[in-house]
Nucleic acid binder design. Structure first.
Lengths: 239, 239
DNA sequence: CGCCGTTAAATTGCATGCACTTTTGCGAAG
DNA sequence: CTTCGCAAAAGTGCATGCAATTTAACGGCG
């Protein structure tokens, strides 16, 4: 669901391929909201959206509802749905929460990971040495996701994992640029080393602290990037 | 739907007070699921539910969707919606996550609360001395919610607060019995004292640790209670 | 007796049409 | 000029009807 969300439909999609209309609208609209094409606080007229996607109001209603659940929009009582602006402060707050969630996972992982899991984590980290200087930042991003996921799983706490994954998903639009920042993979690798060491040693508090710092450093990189992007007022291809 | 379906609707309560059908169904169904009247894993037939509440499938669909979002049901691809069983292990995992969330709030609160907020927290705690031995457990429950909420707010991290509140809401059905356990308020008060002391002192790690322990002790009380209740197999009146 | 294709049933997603509620624009009364 | 009230407009919730997809049941074939 990442990069190429190619829509080969020049006109309003006649996607009668039942079962994807809502999903499609959510994908398109969320991308547009995140990228700033809908000014924050602007209305999302259900009628027009229905026409644009050539669907009826029922699926639009569902899509808008999901956007609200995702925090990208909000619905006033009887005044329609408007786009919710994600200020830099909001973004930082979300990363902050993410840092705490991942720290909690790391804390529990340090206590609960099996020996095999610790070895796997360590091996995966070592295996990423090569990618540090890779020109293809997406490669490191893929590894990075897997690495963090391993820590989530190690916590053995399903609900915590669920919360962490959903928060990560919610932050995804703002994160996918972080590795384009110069030398970010190197820094990331160094921080991962400390995390692996702490978890391997079973030092819960140290692991938590290391992860917290790591995520917060990502936060600063990303939020600065987003802030800069919004300052330049980019609005590339409307569709 | 077969032919023998009365299309007259004078009998069902004229609850056409638009705007509460979904909410009502969610409330009733969630209560029934939590109380075990729907055996875990049993199907929730949309059709029958629609008839039972005298509504069409559209709002039922919405209600079931919300139940899934609440974790009380799950939807298999094309095999209908079934009630999700919340095992004692699941419950413990949720409390565990709650403990980490609240600990994170406490950590941040210890660092960020204003002096006024610390005093308010302390005052509220002191004010609860009397309620310790109150025979009306609901009174202590109300105070307890307010006390914990104050700590959430002190974190100044909106998204973290949001996560914490929604998790608390999700646990509510299992928590509302905790203060019926003998001498629970006394223990709670003692634990609160440590929390207040740590936050007042600005000792983040100590505050986090104190809250973590406090929530986990609630977890054990509640999950034991639920486990005991499910063993006795209560399933009073089907309707 | 087991395997496979066919058909019936259930589920889902969506379109469309109302009925009701709340906002809001606008003109009249104070 | 402000305030009140009224009526049009917008928003919302729900009913009902299809069409498409999938699962599950059933009977023939190997």
């Amino acid at each position: 669901m990442s990069s190429s969300h190619s829509e080969e439909d020049p006109l309003p999609t006649r996607s009668l391929r039942t079962g994807q209309a809502v999903e499609h609208m959510v994908a398109v609209l969320s991308e547009e909201i995140v990228s700033g094409q809908w000014p924050p606080g602007s209305r999302l007229p259900a009628q027009q959206i229905a026409q644009r996607f050539s669907v009826s109001r029922t699926p639009v209603r569902e899509a808008l509802s999901q956007l609200c659940a995702m925090g990208l929009a909000e619905s006033r009582p009887h005044r329609g749905v408007i786009t919710a602006q994600v200020s830099q402060a909001d973004l930082l707050a979300m990363f902050e929460a993410m840092a705490e969630l991942e720290a909690a996972c790391a804390r529990l992982s340090a206590q609960r990971m099996t020996l095999a899991e610790r070895h796997q984590l360590s091996a995966m980290h070592e295996g990423s040495r090569d990618l540090r200087a890779s020109t293809r930042s997406s490669e490191y991003a893929v590894f990075n996701d897997a690495f963090h996921s391993l820590i989530y799983q190690g916590s053995k706490s399903d609900y915590l994992i669920e919360l962490t994954l959903s928060t990560r998903a919610r932050l995804a639009p703002f994160r996918h640029t972080q590795f384009r920042v110069a030398r970010r993979p190197e820094h990331s690798f160094a921080e991962h080393s400390e995390i692996v060491a702490a978890i391997s040693a079973g030092d819960a508090e140290r692991a938590a602290q290391a992860v917290r710092q790591h995520v917060l450093s990502v936060a600063h990189v990303s939020s600065d990037y987003v802030a800069a992007r919004s300052r330049t007022g980019e609005s590339p291809c409307p569709e």
